[in-house]
C-alpha cells in the first residue's frame, strides 16, 4: 500500500479515537462494551442462582482480589495492543519486578516506598527496552517480547538464586495488598490499587496525548508518521508506560504472597491478553478501551470463581474459559465486518 493510499484509508475508516470518529462508530463501540458488561451481569446472575455461596460479600471480595494481578497486567497491555503491538513479557516480567522488589526491600533493606517504586520502575525499564527493540531496531513485537519473556524468566531466577525472597523484614509490605485502608469496609487494598490504576489508565487513554497516539498508531502507523508524529518516540513511551503496570502487578503479587516467587509468571501474559480481548480490544490495534479490559478481567475471574464454587472439574473450567475467549473474538470479528 502506498503512503497516499494509507493516508486515504485512514481518513475513510474513522477507527480509533482520532478526530474523525463518527457517531455510529461511537455507538458501535459502546455497544461492544455494553455486550461485555451484559455478559458479566449474566454470568453473575447465573452463578448466583446456581449456588447460594457465590453472592456473598466475602466471595465477591475474593473475586475482586483474584482479579487484581491479572487485571493490572491487562491494563498496561491494553495500551500495547491498541497501538498494534503485543507484549508477551508481562508474565515473567511481573515476576522479575517482584524479585527486584525483594532485592530492594529484603536484600538491601531499603524503605518500603523505595521497594515499591523500584519494582514499578523495573517494569518501566523493561518496557523501555521492549519499546526500543521494537521501535528503533524494528524487531517485530511478538519476537522482541518473546525474547524478553525468556530473559525476564532467567534473570528472576538468577537474581533470586532460584529460591523465593521473603518480606519478613518489611512488616508493612503484606498490608499493601491485603490490608484495608478504608475502615469498616472489608475491601483489601489490592482492589483499591487496581481501581486507582484503572482510573489512571482510563484517563491517560482518553484525555492525554499518549492515549490519542496509541489509537492513532494502532489504526494506521504510516499515516500517523506522515502527519508528522514521531512514531518511534511514542511507541517507546507506550511500552514504557505499559511496563510500569507490569511493575505494579509484580509488587501487588509479591505483597499478596508475602514473597517473591521466582518460578511463577509463565502463562499469566496469556490470561492478561485474554482479558483484554474479551473486553473488546482488537488484536489488530486501533480499537479498545480500559473499561472493556476491566470488564474482561472481571469476566475471567467471575467465570473461574463461579465454576470452582460449583465444583466443576478443572478440565471443564479450562474449556469454559477458552470458549468465552472464542466467543469474544468472534463478536469482535462480526463488529469489524460491519465497520468495513
Amino acid at each position: 500500500m502506498s503512503t497516499v493510499q494509507a493516508a486515504k484509508s485512514e481518513s475513510r475508516t474513522h477507527t480509533g479515537d482520532t478526530a474523525g470518529r463518527t457517531l455510529s462508530g461511537r455507538l458501535r463501540s459502546s455497544l461492544q462494551q455494553f455486550l461485555a458488561f451484559a455478559s458479566l451481569i449474566a454470568l453473575v446472575i447465573f452463578f448466583s442462582i446456581a449456588s447460594g455461596k457465590f453472592m456473598t460479600l466475602s466471595n465477591i471480595s475474593g473475586i475482586l482480589l483474584a482479579t487484581s494481578v491479572i487485571g493490572i497486567l491487562a491494563l498496561g497491555t491494553t495500551f500495547v495492543i491498541i497501538s498494534g503491538g503485543i507484549d508477551l513479557s508481562i508474565g515473567t516480567g511481573m515476576t522479575l519486578c517482584s524479585v527486584m522488589t525483594g532485592v530492594f526491600l529484603t536484600y538491601l533493606g531499603l524503605p518500603l516506598i523505595v521497594g515499591v517504586i523500584g519494582g514499578i520502575l523495573t517494569g518501566a525499564v523493561m518496557g523501555l527496552v521492549n519499546g526500543t527493540l521494537i521501535a528503533a531496531l524494528k524487531i517485530p513485537p511478538f519476537i522482541a517480547t518473546l525474547a524478553m519473556m525468556m530473559i525476564a524468566e532467567g534473570l528472576a531466577l538468577v537474581i533470586s538464586g532460584t529460591s523465593p525472597i521473603y518480606f519478613g523484614s518489611t512488616p508493612g509490605f503484606t498490608n499493601l495488598a491485603l490490608g484495608s485502608v478504608i475502615p469498616g469496609l472489608s475491601i483489601p487494598n489490592a482492589v483499591l490499587i487496581i481501581f486507582i490504576a484503572a482510573v489512571l489508565a482510563g484517563v491517560t487513554m482518553s484525555k492525554t496525548i499518549i492515549g490519542r497516539y496509541t489509537f492513532s498508531i494502532g489504526s494506521n502507523e504510516d499515516a500517523t508518521a506522515l502527519s508528522g508524529v514521531n512514531v518511534k518516540k511514542w511507541k517507546v513511551l507506550i511500552y514504557t508506560f505499559a511496563g510500569a503496570f507490569t511493575g505494579l502487578a509484580g509488587v501487588v503479587m509479591a505483597s499478596r504472597l508475602s514473597s517473591a516467587q521466582p518460578g511463577l509468571g509463565m502463562g499469566y501474559e496469556l490470561e492478561a491478553i485474554a482479558a483484554v480481548i474479551i473486553g473488546g480490544t482488537s488484536l489488530q490495534g486501533g480499537k479498545g478501551s480500559i473499561i472493556g479490559t476491566v470488564i474482561g478481567a472481571l469476566i475471567m475471574s467471575v467465570l473461574t470463581n463461579g465454576l470452582r464454587i460449583m465444583s466443576i472439574p478443572q478440565e471443564w473450567q479450562n474449556v469454559a474459559v477458552g470458549a468465552v475467549i472464542l466467543l469474544a473474538v468472534y463478536l469482535d470479528m462480526l463488529r469489524r465486518k460491519e465497520t468495513s
Partner: peptide, 15 residues
C-alpha cells in the same frame, strides 16, 4: 502455583 492455589482454596472454602 501459589497465587492460583490461593484463589482456588478460597473459592473452595466459600463453596
Amino acid at each position: 502455583d501459589q497465587l492460583k492455589s490461593t484463589d482456588l482454596a478460597k473459592a473452595m472454602i466459600q463453596a
